[in-house]
Design a protein around this nucleic acid. Structure first.
Lengths: 223, 223
DNA sequence: CGCACCCTCATCCCTTGGTAGGAGACGCCA
DNA sequence: TGGCGTCTCCTACCAAGGGATGAGGGTGCG
């Protein structure tokens, strides 16, 4: 006998979920609420709850804020995210915060049932189609165990390269930088290529992001 | 007919895995190697491979480095991590890097079989006992998507446009953003054009500079 | 002196970025 | 109901970015 609570402000979705659960999960009660405050209130009043299905776009909880609140408020309650969003990173963030599953609203009926079953049995559920997509190449930046070997990459830039990088960071094109420094555009490109190579960047935007993270000295001074 | 490759430098563990697979997974070949270089060599020579089981302490690949290498080298090959480590964050990092599963070496025989089956069917497998442990309180620090509260009078970007802008500010190309949001690259271009027009920018870099100056919320959040 | 490094500029070539225009689907609202 | 805005996707085209390579001239150093 499981008892679930779904917190979602779309009545239609709640109905659909209700239909799926009552058809597929025997001996299961499904309670409903359409906002976070109501969910917390319900949780405090009923302690037999097995799982909370939490939508990410509640009127009183935008994004993962609601999950954060719940995890600090009642960490004993398993929470699975139910959302229309398909971003890989969002799924990871939810799990990081302690969610026990992430169910896209586009999940077909029988797979949704399988996901719920899996979660209720103590496993985790992650949407395979989203997670199997290749991660963005900069995913490694989010890792916790980043050894501090990354430093000194900036220091290896020559003076002219740092000049060019500064102008890049102000949004200038190669042509503008060339005018500003009174050199040919091809020369600027050469510098840019060297910068990308030394920083391990894949584009000029990427290079700027890396530079800003590593605090290029007086790099973003306005002129 | 599945074909697996296990990369682990402990012969005893390879033997144990062999026993489990041959007893529980019909029609499955299990190949073996004891280092990363050998694994890559094997992968390049055999393209029917369904899954790589990668240990995290190979002689020529410390920690997640090996996974990183493999993901960039042959992103089409699903990789599941097999490790003695039990840290929650390590599991998350592995998934972030594109692993399709994480199997602790302490996993009991039948559960290991279930995990392999689940992964081979296209699902992800995460160790429930580790992941269900409460996350460390500072987990929120690594989040990328910090919800917004108050907005700027910035030239009124739509939600999707702000999404795109955030990814732009992280250095992603249009193609990468498209993958991340599960939309076509042309759509991303449409959004980018709209962003540039609304911000009065002349290029994507310019747009990012403007956005950062106007304090676009959580646009430069660390990931 | 030779050598390494940097700045300069060039050419070829391919990829990415950005614009323009059109179009279908959806939801919202008067 | 019709209009409006957003999101989606397309084709086509041109500009900009970036890689690869070569090469001349400058400086500093052993």
């Amino acid at each position: 006998m499981y008892s679930l609570l779904v917190a979602d402000d779309h009545p239609l979705f709640r109905d659909a979920l209700h239909a799926v659960v009552s058809a597929g999960l025997a001996d299961t009660q499904l309670f409903e609420t359409d906002n976070l405050a109501g969910a917390i209130h319900f949780i405090e009043a009923h302690d037999g709850l097995d799982l909370l299905l939490l939508d990410l776009s509640l009127p009183d909880a935008e994004g993962l804020e609601g999950l954060k609140t719940l995890r600090t408020h009642c960490p004993w309650l398993p929470v699975a995210i139910v959302s229309a969003h398909q971003e890989r990173q969002l799924v990871l963030d939810a799990i990081t915060l302690g969610a026990v599953g992430y169910i896209p609203k586009s999940t077909p009926r029988e797979q949704l049932l399988a996901a719920l079953t899996q979660i209720l049995q103590g496993q985790l559920y992650l949407p395979a189609d989203i997670m199997r997509r290749p991660p963005p190449p900069n995913a490694a930046r989010s890792l916790s165990a980043v050894p501090a070997e990354k430093q000194m990459r900036l220091a290896r830039l020559t003076d002219k390269q740092q000049d060019v990088l500064r102008y890049m960071a102000q949004g200038m094109s190669n042509k503008q930088i060339a005018r500003e420094l009174s050199i040919a555009e091809t020369t600027v490109k050469t510098h840019v290529s060297a910068i990308l190579r030394k920083l391990g960047a894949t584009s000029r935007v990427h290079a700027i992001v890396i530079a800003s993270e590593e605090e290029l000295p007086h790099s973003f001074a306005k002129r």
